[in-house]
Design a protein around this nucleic acid. Sequence first.
DNA 1: ACGACAAGTTCCTTAAGGGAACTCTGTTTG
DNA 2: CAAACAGAGTTCCCTTAAGGAACTTGTCGT
Lengths: 156, 156
Amino acid sequence: MQRTRFGDMACSIARTLDVIGEPWSPLILRDVWVGISRFEQIQADLGISRKVLTERLNHLVDQGVLERRPYDHRPRHEYHLTQKGIELVDLLMVMTTWGDKWLAGEAGPPVLYRHHACGEISQVDLRCTHCGEPMHAGDIDPLPGPGAAAHARPGG
Amino acid sequence: MQRTRFGDMACSIARTLDVIGEPWSPLILRDVWVGISRFEQIQADLGISRKVLTERLNHLVDQGVLERRPYDHRPRHEYHLTQKGIELVDLLMVMTTWGDKWLAGEAGPPVLYRHHACGEISQVDLRCTHCGEPMHAGDIDPLPGPGAAAHARPGG
DNA sequence: ACGACAAGTTCCTTAAGGGAACTCTGTTTG
DNA sequence: CAAACAGAGTTCCCTTAAGGAACTTGTCGT
């Protein structure tokens, strides 16, 4: 289906999609995050095709988001999040917050997060790293940065 | 390619992917967000196939993330973010932060955000809505919520 | 030696993305 | 008044990715 590569665009959103934008990848990360970390476990949990799971795991390992770690003398391994991968969980938490609000419906959220620091059931909120005030769509102006390729189209 | 539908899973990540998980969708949202809002503009900016762009726009409108708004007597329209869509921009900002940190390389970030409240070039940080402390992967425990389908597999 | 098991591979079918050409509706221009 | 124009899609064909089931490989316990 010769899908367009996003990684070459001068856009951090596009580049991020190149790492975890393929179908299933965020769900695989979620599984690994919550401790479902072996091939058979992930395959059974998600119902994903074994072929596609192999491709996704290889890609995520290649990208440095997951690492393969043996847990036996046999050729057996678990997948674990690298630091790069752990920081992607931010993305999953924001997806969860949005999905809980707009798509959960009557039944309510399927999963709750308890925050260690305060012990409350809570959600994430986006704040400015500088002043600590809320930082959402209407609160910012996008400006060209140093990596803005003057001519690089498409995908500025 | 008969892709599996994620929307039926009892998982807000999966459900969110059902709305914006298809290739190009986040980039279309980004374009609309920054004011690239007409069919021809988006098509030219992204280099996306017209056929796929039509499909994505229809889906995003169906999902209530975008709305079609006429700007002329002729059959001409612009796409605009609904409230549901505006809140998805949180996700784009977190993707940008991650991509800036891990994928921008030497050149640095292609786009910078200036925060209105403080005037600084800044990024988003995830905080607990309850106590205001940082809330990242290691700071929480996931618990089953009211919408957790006891038997709904796969994708809990 | 033999069966079990995790972790892939292989192979076939179906459908989604890419891309170019075409259509439709209404509008300026000559 | 006909012709060219423009935005917003449609249609068609080709290639490739996802689904799914069956098969392979390496190692262990008995």
